[in-house]
């Protein structure tokens, strides 16, 4: 990851056991839940950057955020729309 806040967050996210997050978007809204997966802008580049996250709320049972019929649960959030992310258990917060 080329952008350092994104890289910092990713490393923290990978190492953190509890991944419940509070996400604030640039449009002012906020939500609590977790990221279940992510997409890269171009993972063939040597320094790929995360482009989007698949976000589900804390109650979601499916580990991959997909229901029994194969449909998406939750929503896709663009990294560029995120203002800040806070890990609820450790209070670690990162601003973009």
């Amino acid at each position: 990851m080329s952008t350092s806040p994104c890289e910092k967050f990713y490393n923290q996210w990978v190492s953190q056991k509890s991944k419940t997050l509070e996400i604030r978007l640039k449009n002012g809204s906020s939500m609590i839940g977790k990221f279940v997966s992510h997409y890269y802008t171009d993972e063939t580049m040597d320094v790929p950057t995360i482009d989007r996250w698949h976000f589900v709320n804390d109650q979601c049972k499916s580990p991959v955020g997909i229901d029994a019929f194969g449909y998406l649960i939750g929503e896709i959030i663009f990294q560029k729309n995120i203002r800040s992310i806070k890990f609820l258990d450790s209070s670690f917060e990162i601003k973009f």
């Binding site: 990978v14 997966s37 992510h38 997409y39 890269y40 171009d42 063939t44 482009d51 580990p63 991959v64």
Partner: peptide
Amino acid sequence: ARKINNRFTKFVDLGKYVHK
């Protein structure tokens, strides 16, 4: 098209599934 394809490839944290 491979670039578009790659952009829509979803990645997950493998560590989360290791126990399963």
